[in-house]
Design a protein around this nucleic acid. Structure first.
Lengths: 228, 228
DNA sequence: CGTGATCTTGAGGGAATTCAATGTCGGTGG
DNA sequence: CCACCGACATTGAATTCCCTCAAGATCACG
């Protein structure tokens, strides 16, 4: 459990510090998160929060990558989302998290007390609106995930690569922070099928795989065609 | 297209009418929807809105049942959700709907102008909060849907039946408004697999199927076990 | 250079799909 | 009233795609 590590976060500057300095409430939730928290480090595979734990914080990825997931009682794991630098996660309506969150690689994550944001939203319509917008964006992302899960293996992998490419900084090379197992659990496939499918895509000249965690999209049109 | 039918809804009472009567803004979004709209009828299979159409309204099911769905370019259809009396749908953040919506059976649906709700939310923190809460609930529902889609056919069908049972009014009999095709497209299966699976569940005494649209949950524990 | 973790590849099996036929129900008209 | 029709549902047989199990290959790291 990581509870202690979260608990001692109380020593980080909180909104009261801002109030004391007579700073007007920030219009942008994104900004307020930066102002209200300090980056907290997590080791590779470190737990950020667990399913059913109180949802006390919101989180913003500063560096590294995060996965959220659920485990069924027979051990199957489903990854709900990958979060990359700049992404906010842990936004829940209930009192507890409905997924668990782990660092995929070494990470820095900004934390903000949920109660602070909610309080802020009670005063600023801007913040309230962004809280809603962020949740709605997450909803759209989840709906897109559903559309992936009904497709063939090729389509899922192609869709995943295109998604990662669109979120990555640069051109047509995707740097994957996650393992094949993570990808498989995100796409509802096995590692073997993911691996085989990547090989197929490479043989059909749609991609090349210089190293297992680096993938070059050689024929984006072909991938888009698979993306249905 | 149903655009005309929506357009003439401008003749329904709008928030301004309430303001003129010096009524305080309602605290509950649910109430405001009832106050702001009148029930509109839709025929079986009638389109309520289409994907990529402007998201001008929110909708509340008064009677009947609604499905939202997307169609892939090769014709595969994925149903995003079923909405039953009391449920609100069409809540989108973007300017356009990301799914289409159709009446499964003859329906009455309450409509409310999106702009009115958003304006109301700008004045009432209560309404803003409920707008957020509703979106977050929808997110949770979608995440649960993902967990269904990674399971076996038996588990998906069992999960679907339990979901419908928990939403239906009465005891352990589920009255299905939707066809096998709808169920299949919701669960990412074929109608044949849905049909065969129901037969299996019946043979294993977990359910009985007196008529194709009526299902009795005979052994809820067994279904829950399948629900993983 | 070994060791464990991760990834790839192969062979065989199984669950769901596809294709096809039959069965059932509700409505409509003779 | 019942015979017919179309829509919907069920069942069967064959196929396909992905999974499972198993063996190598590659990579990172001490």
């Amino acid at each position: 459990m990581h509870t202690q590590s979260l608990t001692h976060r109380n020593s980080y500057p909180l909104p009261t510090a801002r109030a004391a300095r007579n700073v007007p409430p920030p219009a942008l939730l994104n900004e307020s998160i930066e102002l209200m928290g300090a980056a907290m480090p997590f080791a590779r595979n470190g737990e950020i929060y667990g399913e059913n734990e109180p949802a006390e914080y919101l989180y913003k990825v500063i560096s590294g990558a995060v996965r959220t997931y659920k485990v069924l009682n027979d051990g199957r794991r489903q990854i709900g989302a990958f979060y990359l630098p700049g992404d906010i996660f842990g936004l829940e309506i209930g009192e507890v998290h409905s997924f668990s969150a782990e660092a995929i690689v070494e990470c820095k994550v900004m934390l903000i007390k949920r109660s602070s944001v909610v309080a802020l939203a009670g005063r600023s319509h801007d913040v309230a609106n962004q809280l809603w917008t962020m949740t709605a964006k997450e909803l759209q992302r989840t709906q897109a995930h559903i559309m992936l899960l009904i497709k063939t293996a090729q389509e899922r992998v192609a869709g995943f690569l295109l998604e990662m490419a669109s979120r990555a900084p640069a051109g047509n090379t995707v740097e994957l922070p996650m393992s094949r197992q993570d990808i498989a659990d995100y796409l509802g496939l096995t590692i073997e099928t993911v691996s085989r499918t990547l090989t197929q895509l490479e043989n059909s000249a749609a991609i090349s795989v210089p190293s297992s965690r680096r993938i070059v999209l050689r024929n984006q049109a072909a991938l888009n065609r698979l993306n249905a």
